[in-house]
Design a protein around this nucleic acid. Structure first.
Lengths: 202, 202
DNA sequence: TCAACCATTGGCCCCGAGGCCAACTGTGCG
DNA sequence: CGCACAGTTGGCCTCGGGGCCAATGGTTGA
């Protein structure tokens, strides 16, 4: 397996809540890590392993919403599930607009939390797949010289070598050379594959 | 202009609310239609024109959430903005999970509503663009014979005519013929365009 | 039964893509 | 200065894609 097991990050200032959640998740087969505050969670660099965050809304210091904002500030943010004792409507709506997976009230029904976590992990897995694919393409694109990149873009747009040559003001032969190098560097074995590669990136 | 002006559909059982909202939207430059109940709105076939729905949560009969569900049941649903006098957290979260653009409490601040409507209309415009593009491709794909469709799929996967011929157990010449017909019917002027067309669809 | 449409194939020819070898130019780096 | 690398181009040859014309056989609806 190349994918590690997902980890659920639990953030709550109440140790007894953390213990209870941890037990609940363990029973459902989920690994978990616990944090006493948003700061503690944010302090360590985002873990490699897939996962999601379950955070109490009313944390002292940086609250749940702030944690969500800070995570969003980073390029890659794991899905967030909110727990709250007595959250108000506006806060819940704001959290959901911010991309939260769910916004649950304590005491939380185990089934609801487990369900939300399943959704969150699925969402994270999807996001990772997309990111990995894009990063892979980006890594290979970085190998191209500026000229090769120009040619690539025009090729993907469907231009003929002849047209690209005219557009760049150079000989068609030269386009063929650049084009061949692009195919090698991007490891594409045909125009179709090249186009699909570039569409998946952006 | 091929795109008509967007229309905001207002659903509320209180005529005075409808009048007030209508005035507010008119001042912001938005055309609107009013409905006294979810049933009345759902009765008429979804209008062609782009737009969004602003619905009161606590309607008699089918309430806002039910309206949202029924809209989602149709293939294409306009974005929904909820208004509510005293909605609870769970309801708001459920609405947002159901895809609502926003969930506002009455009395609503004009700025918040106008902002939400802007977001909703933008979302609708995006969705329409996607749908139109997909429908256009689907319409052209419908012109293909089963055999042409088989060839198309393999071509887009990057297979050579020779390989496709082997895979289908027929002569390469025949593949060329099918392929040419596919290009004509789909109005693609090159492999790159063909692949992009098919990726945009699914 | 005839026309229309689909699937199939062959021959011929042209053009676009691409590999191989060779060569020249400019730029930056040790 | 001399090497390495990017960009450039030419010639030659092969192969894949695709247009044009012609033809056959099967299915189907008028």
């Amino acid at each position: 397996m190349s994918a590690e097991a997902p980890v659920v990050h639990l953030v709550d200032d109440d140790p007894s809540v953390l213990r209870a959640l941890r037990r609940l998740l363990a029973a459902a087969g989920h690994a978990s890590e616990t944090y006493r505050s948003a700061e503690e969670f944010l302090a360590r660099p985002l873990p490699e392993a897939p996962g999601c965050v379950v955070v109490d809304l009313g944390l002292p210091g940086a609250d749940g919403l702030e944690l969500q904002d800070r995570l969003a500030g980073r390029g890659t943010a794991p899905p967030v599930i909110f727990l709250t004792g007595r959250g108000d409507l506006a806060t819940g709506v704001r959290a959901m607009k911010g991309g939260a997976v769910d916004f649950l009230t304590k005491p939380v029904e185990p089934g609801a939390l487990i369900g939300a976590i399943a959704v969150a992990l699925a969402r994270d897995a999807d996001a990772r797949r997309s990111r990995d694919a894009e990063a892979d393409v980006a890594r290979r694109l970085a190998l191209l010289t500026p000229r090769e990149r120009e040619v690539l873009d025009l090729v993907v747009e469907g231009r003929l070598n002849k047209q690209i040559a005219a557009e760049l003001g150079i000989a068609e032969k030269t386009i063929k050379v650049h084009r061949a190098r692009v195919m090698r560097k991007l490891d594409a074995r045909g125009l179709a594959e090249l186009v699909r590669l570039m569409m998946g990136a952006g």
